[in-house]
């Protein structure tokens, strides 16, 4: 029996791919200068760790609003409001972008394109734009978060709509219901658990992003952190980092528990 000889291209394909990957990696490393480390790097790293182990406990709660607890509450409020707003706005976008037929459709492609543009627009830039409109503060953060989340939730929602079983809808239509009936009694009840699940997932991410919005002045815990970093008060950096880690962990755990219950 003759084994069919593989063509030269097939034989050399793995080597060509490895070579290309290697070249990309070399190119990537060539652009980074590894020598520019500050001489004080080790010392600063040490002070950050000592700040983590000797945090400034007096900053946790002082009673007049300039403390860690109120900054964290503001962060949570930004994430919560932004997610709630966009979870409602994302629904029509999701129906726009969902591809419900096998064929190419202008409607769903244009919707997907719009959602992609919203999604890749950097959140910090949105925050800066809204700061121009409403002034620095948490409100700008809420607006930025609300707009940015539409892109991601719209995508997740539209995928949920694409994946549902079309049977109930067709049953309602064939029983004489109109399209609104089908939406109300078949589509929405089927996709609702998925929608809530994705909203909670997005909330987890929003809490993380809300804690950096303060870097540009859009409220939340980021601003005191940057301030503490630039004034080199490491014990305060330590307590703020601990606060963020605790907040994110608790929210992740809470939302994970609810999501497990929902999808049972």
């Amino acid at each position: 029996m003759m084994v069919k000889k593989r063509s030269f291209y097939e034989q050399s394909r793995p080597y060509i791919i490895s070579l290309i990957v290697l070249l990309i990696v070399i190119w990537a490393f060539s652009g980074i200068q590894f020598s520019g480390i500050k001489s004080s790097a080790g010392q600063i790293l040490g002070s950050i760790f000592s700040g983590l182990f000797h945090p400034d406990w007096s900053y946790v709660y002082s009673g007049h609003g300039e403390d860690l607890v109120s900054a964290l509450i503001e962060t949570l409020a930004i994430a919560f409001l932004g997610t709630i707003i966009s979870s409602f706005i994302a629904v029509p976008f999701a129906f726009w972008a969902a591809r419900t037929t096998k064929k190419f459709s202008v409607r769903s492609s244009s919707g997907k394109f719009v959602l992609t543009v919203i999604r890749v627009f950097p959140e910090l830039v949105l925050a800066i734009m809204f700061i121009k409109a409403v002034g620095p503060g948490a409100f700008a953060g809420v607006l930025a978060m609300g707009v940015h989340s539409i892109g991601m939730m719209g995508k997740l929602f539209s995928e949920a709509i694409e994946n549902i079983d079309r049977g109930p809808e067709e049953a309602i239509i064939s029983a004489g219901g109109n399209r609104f009936d089908a939406l109300n009694w078949a589509t929405l009840p089927t996709v609702m658990p998925e929608f809530i699940n994705f909203t909670l997932y997005r909330f987890e991410i929003a809490v993380r992003s809300a804690s950096i919005l303060g870097i540009v002045g859009a409220g939340g815990v980021g601003a005191p952190l940057i301030f503490a970093l630039s004034t080199r008060s490491w014990s305060r950096v330590g307590i703020i980092l601990i606060g963020i880690v605790v907040m994110v962990t608790v929210i992740d755990w809470l939302s994970g528990t609810i999501r497990k219950q929902l999808l049972k």
Binding site: Q33, G36, I37
Partner: peptide, 8 residues
Amino acid sequence: AVVGIGAL
């Protein structure tokens, strides 16, 4: 803050 400004 630790390493300094730059791509690193």
